[in-house]
Amino acid sequence: MIAAVLQRLVQMAFVMFGISVLVFLIFFATPGADPAARLAGRNASPETVQQIRHEFGFDRPLPVQYAIMMKKLFITQDLTSFVNRGEKVVPEILAAAPATLSLVAGAALLWVLGGLFVGVISAATRGSWLDRSLMILALIGISMPVFWLASMANLVTQSAYHDSWAFSWVPELGYTPLTKNPLRWFQGLVIPWLTLATLYVGIYGRVLRANLIETLQEDYIRTARAKGLSETRVLLRHGLRTSLAAFVTMFGLDFGSLVGGAALLTEVLFGINGVGRLTYIALGNLDLPMILASVMYASFFVVGANAVVDILYAVIDPRVRKE
């Protein structure tokens, strides 16, 4: 067990090393990305640019710069932004984490329940009008770009119908910590939760339906039916269990990357100051320290979530455990 965990940690280190090197190289290969002139400011004299270059160590060899940056990121944790000078990126990411976690955890709950609901009902009523309409809704959910949906949600709840009875409870955009005001936390996140979950309810419902239908044609299900088990029982006990593999895998991928900050646009459009927004700003500013920190943070969760998923496989399907 300990060996397995250790092995996974070593692999995680490799993944993070690979990503960080790639990010680093891509950054310095981009013309115009050289931070010296941007740090020095508009119309700075060449002497000033040169001194800034030296002060920040941009005149040193790339491997040295990489090593220094990694040391500052992981060991001393005092790496500061290239854009907001003096802003330490590690505490900034950690401070933003609760907002992202609140957003993603709530949305994940919604989309897991929604996905299960859509998938199971559609599979059970396969071919009926209910199945068809649920699938149409799911595909509409998948086709709507998140920035469009979020903008529309804002247009309706904040602007057009803000003063109507339906949406007067929606507070102004932004994130209120759970510890500060639980009610406000909840109210402020309802619309973002729904927006973020829409896409995933569609995808998960669609995939689950297909896998359920597939499984229901397996021999052992026929056996179960033949034994006279009720259809609901067959569906939920036997069918769902084996159909969940893809569902769980995708959940691992999505949850990991979203907690790691992949919900960029949802956070930006709803003014939620989370890791995704930090990543968005860092990419827009080409702020290497912040990009590196957020990407390292994201990769930690991606690898971690996948590790959990691999363990879950064994729980769902005992046959896999043998390996």
């Binding site: 990010v23 990407v295 991606v302 690898v303």
Partner: peptide
């Protein structure tokens, strides 16, 4: 795949 998925 992890690298690809986490890569910006």
């Amino acid at each position: 795949l992890d690298v690809l998925w986490a890569f910006p």
